[in-house]
């Protein structure tokens, strides 16, 4: 019962780490390049969830100051702001790697890593 309680208390952190690991597993094991990029995005989401979860304060209010809530406990807005930057970075990384996949598909005609490795090694032996 205590373990269940612990899990429920830290569910945000656990979810973040779980997403991170699922993403890492996808990147490392899948041979489809698009799926790898999706895996990276899942990994990124895991880290972002973890980061945002840090900012939470139990019983805190959204950090918007009005006349009513002076002196109230606010949640920490900084992690959310940082993660905005992180999201932008991951989007640009995704765009760049997707454009690379397009080029790879144009030149090799496949986006499967195993197929690519075979084609490249054939080409090297040919030289």
């Amino acid at each position: 019962m205590i373990i269940l309680q612990k899990i429920l208390e830290n569910i945000n952190y656990l979810g973040g780490i779980a997403l991170f690991l699922i993403g890492l597993h996808t990147v490392v094991t899948h041979s489809n390049l698009i799926k790898r990029i999706i895996g990276l995005n899942i990994m990124g989401t895991g880290v972002f969830l973890f980061f945002v979860a840090i900012g939470n304060v139990t019983g805190g209010e959204p950090p918007i100051m009005t006349e009513d809530n002076i002196g109230a406990i606010f949640i920490n807005p900084l992690p959310s702001v940082l993660i905005l930057t992180g999201i932008v970075v991951v989007v640009s990384m995704t765009v760049y790697s997707l454009s690379l996949v397009i080029r790879i598909f144009e030149t090799y005609g496949t986006i499967d890593q195993k197929e690519l490795t075979r084609l490249i090694s054939e080409q090297n032996n040919h030289d």
Binding site: L40, M43, G44, S97
Partner: peptide
């Protein structure tokens, strides 16, 4: 780019 992104994360 893949390894770079894993490293950044």
């Amino acid at each position: 780019v893949m390894l770079n992104e894993i490293a950044s994360m």
